[in-house]
Amino acid sequence: MTDVAEGFTPGVGKSRSDDNRRDHVPGDSSMWFFVIGDLLIFGVYFVGYMYFRGQNHELFLQSQVRLNLDIGAINTVMLLTSSLFVALGTEAARAGNRVAALQRFWIALAFGAAFPLLKMFEWIPEICSGLTPGTNLFFMYYYVMTGMHLCHVALGLVILCFILRNLKTSKAPQISFVETGATYWHMVDVLWLVLFALLYLMR
């Protein structure tokens, strides 16, 4: 085992067999209750959106066409790539490879940070052209749902910074903490995948 690996909490990520373990809840169970609660709350928004869309398909279709599908698609890839590196970083942390874990979480943070930046390039022209939450029901849902999601992204980026700090400075980084943060970040990804289909893609 390398000196890097020795820095990790005993009993954590000592062997490859850990990767094959079953019935393991990644991270803190309380995070999972939060995640499931959040998925349910967003689920209500998604179904509400679909219900009101059904009341006025024409309005939603005409409004939807004014969104920037390119940025929406690029942002989807940004979050997916960020999630990949979080998953790879978690794997490295579990294997006791602190250097690889740090590198991967830095890459994840960079891709994650691109999301709000691109969102600004999307929102600002839209707002400047008069598309605001008050424009119609579609744009109300659009700004509220993507706005709530953006708050989750912002919190996720802060959590990624804490994971990086934990990996960098702690003598014995806790894999449970890394897994808990990773679980939250992946949830943000899952929510965006549904939002992207509902707001940008469906007709």
């Binding site: 019935d23 393991h24 990773a182």
Partner: peptide
Amino acid sequence: HFMEVRRAP
């Protein structure tokens, strides 16, 4: 795969 639920309870 990313959230590792395939190995979860």
